[in-house]
Design a protein around this nucleic acid. Structure first.
Lengths: 165, 165
DNA sequence: TTCAAATCTTTCGATATTGAAATAATAACA
DNA sequence: TGTTATTATTTCAATATCGAAAGATTTGAA
């Protein structure tokens, strides 16, 4: 949408950029989902398996922090992965509040199979940009996303600046 | 996540960029939600109201296409907006398959109140980037998102290129 | 005209997602 | 030690989201 907004130039540019940004993110994710390299996995499930695959056993809170999702959400995704026999929950004997998630052999097999394919799809989609452009995009995204490295659980309502003059 | 991936350089850069991109999008949306300018509206509901506000009465299919969401999803969001008395469904007399959505006076009032505030929040968040950077981000996002301007309903499973060498 | 194909919306089942409340266990401290 | 605060996970209710199938209606072609 070309915004259809009549306001000051700064706001107009921000809205225009925001829309392109949001749409590109949605479209990218959608195409990732429709290129059939995920097998029976959802994108969330892939994210969790990938995290455990590359970082080793973690507890739900850590996964939540890595993926920037709420703890409640992670619980559900883990439930579904456990139903499929891809991960295993083990109660920590030191601190019995904690639970450690491990990939089962089946889970390890799935992610070992799926990850390289998905990486290839991502690389292919990303190849719409030159390497230099990718670096730029990454840098701008990082700058834009700064300060937001907490999972939803921990986000508190900020005092309302709205100092946009 | 710094990816923890050991592959060829091109794939590594793509994954790294992808992660920054995805995270920034999620973080941005999350902060938009937590700056309290939306009242009782969800982001989806805001999107629908904003679309009707700026484009005038539309039918569900058009809203679906504008927002790149599935028709089933739009039906639900409209249901919730209708429950709140913010939009109204009217069956089209010409083509009785269609339904036209209109903002009620209450809906018009809400979006007129909320939109400028939300626009200010977006401008404020976006001000992490200079105008020039915003233009660049917009251009790169557009390039990255090209060809994906269809709503989920209409996306067909592409024959699997995976021609990533 | 009539029937098959196409179009538009809704319904349905499954998964995702949040935020708040509930549970359980540990840590801190008077 | 006993009570309170903190931390970790799960549960719950509400909304979002998809994709496929169902329903209703119109179009197009024989």
């Amino acid at each position: 949408m070309p915004t259809h907004f009549e306001g000051d130039e700064r706001t107009k540019l921000a809205l225009d950029t925001f829309i392109k940004f949001t749409r590109a993110a949605g479209a990218f994710e959608s195409r990732l989902l429709h290129r059939g390299q995920l097998g029976d996995l959802t994108l969330s499930q892939f994210g969790v398996l990938e995290t455990l695959h590359h970082l080793g056993p973690l507890c739900p809170g850590q996964i939540s922090a890595k993926l920037l999702k709420s703890s409640g959400n992670i619980t559900l995704v883990l439930d579904n992965l456990e139903k499929q026999g891809l991960v295993q929950r083990v109660r920590d004997t030191e601190d019995r509040r904690k639970i450690t998630l491990t990939l089962t052999p089946a889970g390890e097999a799935v992610i070992t199979e799926v990850f390289p394919r998905q990486a290839a799809v991502i690389a292919d989609e990303m190849s719409a940009l030159t390497p230099a452009e990718q670096e730029t995009l990454g840098r701008l995204c990082k700058k834009l996303g700064l300060g937001a490295s907490e999972s939803p659980d921990s986000i508190v309502n900020q005092p309302n600046p709205l100092s946009v003059s």
